[in-house]
Design a binder for these strands. Structure first.
Lengths: 204, 204, 204, 204
DNA sequence: AATGAATGAGCTTTCATTCAT
DNA sequence: GATGAATGAAAGCTCATTCAT
């Protein structure tokens, strides 16, 4: 028993080391320059070793993404704690945007890059995003039941809230905010304002 | 004068040829498989020739992006023709979403990919997206003046509308809709519904 | 004694398991995709375990080859049973060709691939092929004694018969029959015809 | 005109350089250790350069094989010059065997290795081996017309002669002659003897 | 203006093998 | 006896870019 458990633990520790190496490469060098070789070098193992833990690069990226989502969930649980559903929804939105803007490379991997999605088979759904999405959905469900928001369909409401937040964050990350003649500071302010306006709009 | 004009014209014609080759590669093979070599092959010139017209790949992509935006503008001008500002806003949103979902690779280049944005210098703004954004802004400006929508700040309103639409389209393109257990068909329906709900919400 | 015998038996059983795994890989995936790792996976042992039973890959292949030769010998014993030597020679040739064409990957290992031959030291002879070759030689010896064939030297005759059969089979396996403009079916027919013609030629 | 011709010539010269580099690697290091990188290093070019002249490794090997066949054809033309068809057939066989035994690695590439055959599309035939095979076929055709040999079908006869010679040479090259307890010298003698015996057998 | 030729740098992946446990 | 963990070495291949002509 103990021996098996140790083995499993060690295996997980190694996977963690790889994941952390990948995250480090992402954050310091960006996605483009993150290769299996680079990650291996970073954690001081040979490239071949990584293939003992991951079938291919996409699988590794998928796990890195999973890790990133756990980070977002932790943020949600720490910052979106209000008992009032609508108040909590506000906190969720603010946390989401804040997370995206401060962890741009991770956000990229979580919501924009295609690679990690390749491991998801046809007809299957995207498990990594599950818990965070459920966190949002649950909250919205409560909002609707209490008639706090002007949506009646949970799915549509959840998708809308998420899209608004994602739209704002991703346009910024992908540098598209440069259409507007604004300072960096102004952009962040506009994003926040837009989220708040949106929340006001949907409030009953 | 005549000679110079001809030269300029010829130069532009060649640039067009390159751009069209790139667009063709994008649409038939996708962004990942679009390399300078592939484009050159497509238009039956040597890779080196492309470098006579573009400093590097990013500059070329920037111009392809510009072309793509002209396409979107044409769509706007053709489909968002209502004289009533709010009605026109509705048409703009629908056209945008429709364009994104039917030209995914081009949308990718226009709003998601980082590469073409590298040419924009610090402090400069993003000229390619200009006209399309102005089209939206103008419309929203009118909506606000006629008090047709519940926003009062043009910038915030424009950013919000755009973000909502972009959020929906890009989450789909980037396969993130897979969190929700929906058929492909259902997804498109949900996107449309979300846009419509949003327009209802902002309507005065 | 009993203990030692059991150990030897167990060791042989394990070797058999490895060999059978290798054969399975050969036949289902072909030689190119047969790696130590694949074999180990197939028999559900670790790659390292194989090295407890075989010094290196070549040694393992040598043993797989030995097994394959036992298969050919069994075929000879089952199908080349005529008491008349020349008739038996005919049966041997037909069995050989048939075996080669229906077990191409194994034939490759037995008669073409270099790897398994690396274990044979200088000055040593090739024990794996021994029994099968003896089966042929014995038969030819009888043919010569009864003056049924137009050869007088057993070695030369055996080598000739073998070479003719091997030439035909291996040219087919190695795709060299493609010089001739023939259908797949025609090729098999030509091989059979060539063998028969050869037997007619050497018959006294 | 002159310019184009020079370009074509230079291109062929480069291809020759690559081919010769490959041949050199083959002969000094053997097939297994001949990689694109190795060849590139040998001729002091970068690996990428080779891909300007050959689509992939198989295509290069196909061309090396072509070169090797030209070498064999030259040998045929130099050594198989008798006007009497049967005599010429004898010369062909002897030349073939001699060529195989003295250029073992090239023979391997020409008649045994699978890689160069991958470029041949389904339904197509193997052009590289064409001329040499025709040289043999023509000769046999004449033999048959003059009733010098005991075969009546040209194809069967050609295939038989070739198979006998190839069987002898390839069994030697692939070290299978080690079944027989013979010195290296004895083996060569046995091969020669077998060819001669065969020729005697088929002679009318 | 156009290009043929070339490359440095990089990629993902696979393999036979070793060794401490 | 068995293995999990690890790796050095190598493979084929692609790309953006440069430069002499």
């Amino acid at each position: 028993m103990g021996i098996n458990e140790r083995k499993v633990r060690e295996r997980n520790e190694m996977r963690q080391r790889i994941i952390q190496g990948a995250i480090h490469m992402f954050m310091t060098e960006g996605y483009e320059k993150t290769s299996i070789r680079n990650i291996a070098e970073k954690i001081e193992y040979s490239p071949a070793t990584i293939y003992l833990y991951y079938k291919d690069k996409d699988e590794l990226l998928y796990d890195v993404q999973k890790e990133a989502f756990q980070g977002l969930l932790v943020e949600f649980q720490a910052r979106a704690t209000a008992t009032d559903p609508f108040e909590r929804l506000t906190q969720i939105c603010q946390t989401y945007v804040r997370f995206g803007l401060t962890n741009q490379e991770m956000y990229n991997l979580m919501f924009i890059l295609k690679a990690p999605m390749n491991v998801i088979e046809e007809q299957e759904y995207w498990k990594n995003g599950d818990d965070c999405f459920a966190f949002l959905t649950t909250c919205i469900h409560e909002c609707i039941q209490l008639k706090q928001i002007r949506y009646d369909n949970v799915m549509i409401a959840a998708l809308s809230v998420w899209s608004m937040a994602h739209g704002l964050v991703s346009l910024d990350i992908c540098c598209r905010m440069k259409v507007m003649e604004m300072e960096e500071e102004g952009v962040v302010h506009a994003i926040t304002a837009s989220v708040n306006e949106y929340l006001k709009l949907i409030k009953n």
